[in-house]
Simulated assay, not measured.
Amino acid sequence: MTATDIPSPPASQDPRPEGLDEAAVHRLVHTFYARVQKDALLGPIFGGRIAEDAWPVHLAKMCDFWSSVLLKSGRYEGRPLPPHLALGSDAGEPQFARWLALFRPTALEVLPPDAAQQAIAHAERMAYSFRLAIGFHKGEDTTRIIPYG
């Protein structure tokens, strides 16, 4: 057997879309949460729980979260569901639908198309699973919760 007879290893297949990197995650998070803060429905919910001087810490945590989700960086250390459970009636269907209604166009605006679609798909899955978990904890009939998308 010669060197030319040895098959080449498969090419590395990075599932990350082109243009999806830490800078893109930062743009997504900061643009999105700037819009959340100004939103009539979501702004008061976030503003009532995050002090103005605590926003940099929250944004850094959200960058870590989305970096872990989209880039598999492992930077986020925490459990995202408990804070959402603590929101009570402020974490219902209207709030999740509005969150996604802001997230989708933001992702499409600040990320390359393939990266935006990946981020949106993750956001929709998370919103759906959070909504199921919150409904379950509230004793709601979660069989009526329809996936987003």
Rank of each mutant, 00 (worst) to 15 (best):
Pro105Ala: 13
Gln37Leu: 04
Asp14Glu: 10
Pro44Thr: 04
Val29Met: 02
Ile146Tyr: 02
Arg131Gln: 14
Gly92Cys: 08
Ser12Pro: 10
Arg98Pro: 07
Pro113His: 13
Arg79Gln: 13
Leu70Trp: 01
Phe136His: 10
Phe65Val: 05
Glu109Cys: 11
Trp99Tyr: 09
Ala23Pro: 03
Ile134Arg: 04
Leu71Ser: 07
Trp99Gln: 04
Gly88Val: 07
Val69Thr: 12
Phe65Leu: 02
Ala97Val: 14
Leu70Arg: 00
Leu111Gly: 08
Arg35Gln: 15
Ala133Tyr: 07
Asp90Gln: 15
Ala101Ser: 14
Lys138Asn: 12
Arg35Ala: 15
Thr4Gln: 10
Leu108Met: 11
Pro17Met: 01
Thr106Cys: 14
Trp66His: 03
Gly135Ser: 07
Gly47Met: 07
Glu22Ser: 15
Arg27Pro: 01
Trp66Gln: 02
Ala121Lys: 14
Ala107Lys: 03
Gln118Cys: 14
Lys138Ile: 06
His26Ala: 09
His26Asn: 06
Thr106Arg: 07
Ala116Thr: 06
Ile120Met: 03
Pro10Leu: 13
Ala91Val: 05
Val36His: 01
Thr106Gln: 09
Thr142Pro: 00
His122Thr: 13
Leu28Glu: 05
Trp99Thr: 08
Phe136Leu: 14
Ala3Trp: 10
Phe96Ser: 06
Met62Arg: 01
Arg144Phe: 08
Ser73Gly: 01
Ser68His: 09
Gly92Phe: 06
Met126Val: 12
Gly47Phe: 02
Gly74Ile: 03
Thr143Pro: 03
His58Asn: 11
Lys72Arg: 11
Ser129Glu: 00
Pro44Met: 07
Gln37Val: 12
Val69Ile: 10
Gly92Gln: 06
Ile134Met: 08
His26Arg: 12
Val36Gln: 08
Glu109Pro: 00
Lys72Ile: 02
Ala121Phe: 05
Arg16Lys: 08
Ile146Pro: 05
Thr2Phe: 12
Leu87Cys: 04
Val29Asn: 01
Asp53Ser: 08
Gly135Asp: 05
Thr31Arg: 09
Ile145Glu: 12
Pro113Thr: 08
Trp55Leu: 04
Glu93Asp: 14
Pro56Leu: 13
Val36Pro: 11
Arg27Gln: 09
Leu71Phe: 02
Gln117Ile: 02
Leu85His: 11
Pro56Asn: 05
Ser8Ala: 15
Ala101Asn: 08
Val69Gly: 01
Phe130Trp: 07
Asp14Arg: 09
Pro112Ser: 09
